[in-house]
Amino acid sequence: MRLIESRTTFVLTYTALAILLLITLFPIALLVLNSLKPATQIVQSPLAWPEVYRWDNFVRAWNDARFGTTMLNSAMLAALTIVLVCSTGSLTAYVLARRKIKSWKIVTFYLLATTTAPIQLFLFPLYFGFAKLGLINNVFAVSLIYTAIYSPFAVMLLRTYFLAVPKELEEAALIDGATHWQVFSKVMLPIVSPGILTVALIIGLYSWNEFLVATTFLQRTDRLTAVVSFFLLSGQYTSDWGEIMAAALIIVLPVIVLFIALQRRFIEGMAGGSVKG
């Protein structure tokens, strides 16, 4: 069924959508195109097709940005954060969704309020405190910061999945003699596992891409994340834009592949929570 019958409206609509499509894809196309070019050709024209394919841009980018180490740091940081957010978040989301405690409202509002707090409001004492405790350049400590920042979002998203589970399931399990913990871990968790997977994907993406906290708390060269290492490479160590774009592509490609493969999960997770309002 069509919204509007007029043919001109229809043609205009597609034209406008296509223009927006081009605007969106243009910088990404420049990224990919120039990652294959020698620096001298980029200076002539960033738009031209590569005269020679400089695959060694990727080799130099990999070595100069120390992706062997920094990618591993990013992956570890993302994995730790995913585990922490999913485990602590699902416990909290379950209790808040089922209103198991009297103060569920206060806790929910408190968590919502922290999502709107600027990072600068807690960054400085946290940094100098961590410095005193020797926690700078500690990946686990940073994953705790990410957990604090991202778990309110995770709790709100998981809460909607718990809300969708019929109460009767829980009651039936309790009548059959299950403990409260068994109800949560054996009955509820398996049902909401698609929600947990969505949260894991999005939290993984956020911590892979995060800049401000990572650049502040992980400064030693062997502890940098891939994104911060890219930032330093492009800002200080080289002005070869072929190499810089190759480094960018190395970080972005796995993300884009994953996003396209699991687009519905990403989009529903990142955008879905806001629609109900």
Binding site: P27, L30, P46, V227, I244, F259, M270
Partner: peptide, 30 residues
């Protein structure tokens, strides 16, 4: 269209910034 429009959201801000800086705004390489 939805997937493509959403795509920039999943790219790290540091990378988006550098692509615009070097490939679009730069008087030398952009």
């Amino acid at each position: 269209f939805q997937v493509v429009y959403f795509l920039p959201m999943v790219i790290a801000t540091a990378i988006t910034a550098r692509v615009w800086q070097g490939m679009i705004y730069s008087p030398l390489t952009g």
